[in-house]
Amino acid sequence: MNAFRLAGDMTHLLSVVVLLLKIHTIKSCAGISLKTQELYALVFAARYLDLFIHFISLYNTVMKLVFLASSFSIVWYMRRHKIVRRTYDKDHDTFRHHFLVLPCLALALLINERFTFREVMWAFSIYLEAVAILPQLVLLQRTRNIDNLTGQYVFFLGAYRVLYILNWIYRYFTEPHFVHWISWVAGIVQTLLYADFFYYYIMSWKNNVKLELPA
């Protein structure tokens, strides 16, 4: 495993830790999109179907379990926890996330590495992950006061995607047979979705003012 990949996984993990910190410790999910969290739970469920079939490494298995457990528990907290769910900004989190699922499934049926159940589900999870951040970005635009933890959560998620691209570039030159076009193209699309957010995040950090996205 190269340094970019490890750093990418760690920022991904950090984003989850930041979000759990906000939800578990501060008992607030203000500014967090439940739609995005539900999509992530679906992404991990679809992608890690081979969890108990293909063993890659202890690291791999543990990380997969962490992402599965954390994504489902975040959804649980936001829907069921009696204090946390009251802080959910339902009125502004209106993105029709169900309409993202079907096109991603259709695309996975058309474009996959092999037409088997697991490969189609893998491609589906890749496509869905690429667009899963959209409800969250829309909610951020509608949020007047974006708190630091929410901003950091999205920033770490975006950093994870950037680092994964660097990881692919590295792997392309060091492992000649390692090419997953599906994850590369979807991953680049996913990263571009963060470009706008990154711009405003870095500007707010540089100018030492509160993060706010223009509507």
Binding site: H54, S57, N60, M63, K64, F67, R114, N167, F178, H180
Partner: peptide, 10 residues
């Protein structure tokens, strides 16, 4: 069929 590259990423 040729084997696919390993899916070892998260």
């Amino acid at each position: 069929t040729a084997s696919l590259p390993a899916k070892d990423e998260l």
